[in-house]
Write a protein that binds this DNA or RNA. Structure first.
Length: 357
DNA sequence: TCTGGGGTCCTAGGACCC
DNA sequence: TCTGGGGTCCTAGGACCC
């Protein structure tokens, strides 16, 4: 085979596209209940706006009232009392997500190429790796295919790596297309605060500010070693690379293999009775054991999480003598761990986690 | 109006072993 | 002897994301 034959067609190069479904949970609910179209819809928890839960997704109509993801349901109900409050129906969202991902996997073949490699990164998000010359055309194909075959709408970010594609999506929403590459990275984000970067939250933004690093350009020009001395030997250099707009160009197309499975519950009323707490932990362990059995994996470690009033969270865990998926062993381990917590204040949340080998 | 649930990866100190 | 370092595991907590 000649070298020329191995080359991609003229002008072709590696692109990464980030696909993000618009108001996904609310859109799935409206899709199956068309009478909700145009109304403010709030999805989260058990659907009871007076319960101690938060908003998972608000429709654009609800956002107009100031309702946001992560907001306590009670506040959402106060801001938008006429909204339709719906319980989260995870199986429905998983099924809708699978529909969308199947559509994405078939995109990108129009010009005789090898198509796309899809890396699913959440119910409503995926990265696509694609070698070609006109990524905007692919983005249009994706949006049309998703709309036609699933009746859902998405935004598409185009980049030369994962970070730039993901950041481009933020400028594409809702339902548009935007391209960010090395050519316009600093022109677009150079003056933005470091906290605008995917992977830098409020805590890290503050620590960087204490080093005199406020903007993306300043972060990009910082010494990875110096930042590492303050933020950790791996995270420091990683943050500097984010400032430079660096990201992956190879997607992981293989099926996702979870590292852990957990179940946790916040109680509407705090619990002070430790016999009841042990009962609840045993029940959570049983749910985890069921999940684990479905995966057919062996558990190496069991952890328990306790959140006390007002919001003090602690964890304890234990490595098992040998990996197992025996529900009785998992329950016994969880109960042994829960007995190591202090019992001097009310409990608002309990959780049990299994970590795989 | 108090702050969900399900995940990931990193950090740092101590134990333990050579 | 009272003095090393390296390597790995275990554990608790931190930060971030969807």
């Amino acid at each position: 085979m000649s070298a020329a034959a191995e080359q991609p067609e003229r002008g072709a190069r590696r692109w990464v596209l980030h696909v993000d479904l618009d108001q996904f949970l609310a859109a799935v609910e409206v899709r199956r209940r068309p009478e909700l179209a145009g109304r403010p819809v709030v999805v989260g928890g058990n659907g009871d706006p007076s319960s101690r839960t938060v908003v998972a997704t608000a429709s654009y109509e609800a956002r107009a009232f100031g309702v946001r993801s992560g907001m306590p349901m009670r506040l959402a109900a106060r801001r938008c009392p006429d909204a339709v409050f719906l319980p989260a129906d995870n199986p429905a969202y998983e099924a809708a997500s699978a529909e969308v991902m199947a559509v994405l996997r078939e995109c990108g073949r129009d010009d005789g190429g090898d198509g796309v490699v899809v890396e699913v990164i959440g119910w409503d998000e995926a990265f696509l790796q694609w070698d070609g010359s006109d990524p905007e055309r692919l983005a249009d194909e994706i949006r049309a295919a998703v709309r036609t075959r699933t009746h859902l709408s998405c935004a598409v970010g185009i980049g030369d790596n994962t970070l730039r594609a993901k950041m481009a999506t933020g400028l594409a929403k809702p339902g548009g297309v935007h391209r960010i590459t090395a050519h316009n990275w600093f022109a677009t984000f150079g003056d933005s605060p470091t906290g605008a970067l995917h992977g830098i939250g409020p805590k890290t933004e503050r620590k960087l500010a204490e080093l005199g690093i406020h903007t993306v350009t300043q972060l990009a020009e910082s010494s990875p070693t110096a930042v590492g001395e303050r933020l950790g030997p791996r995270m420091g250099p990683y943050y500097v690379s984010l400032g430079r707009g660096m990201g992956r160009t190879e997607m992981e197309g293989a099926a996702y293999v979870p590292r852990s499975r957990s179940r946790e519950t916040t109680y509407d009323t705090d619990i002070e009775d430790w016999d009841r707490i042990r009962t609840e932990v045993a029940a959570l362990a049983a749910r985890v054991a069921t999940d684990v059995a479905e995966e057919g994996r062996a558990v190496a470690r069991v952890g328990v999480k306790v959140r006390y009033r007002p919001f003090l969270t602690t964890t304890r865990s234990r490595t098992l003598d040998s990996p197992t998926r025996d529900p009785a062993v998992l329950e016994a381990a969880a109960l042994e761990v829960v007995d190591r917590f202090r019992r001097d204040r009310p409990v608002r949340l309990l959780g049990v986690k299994a970590e795989f080998t």
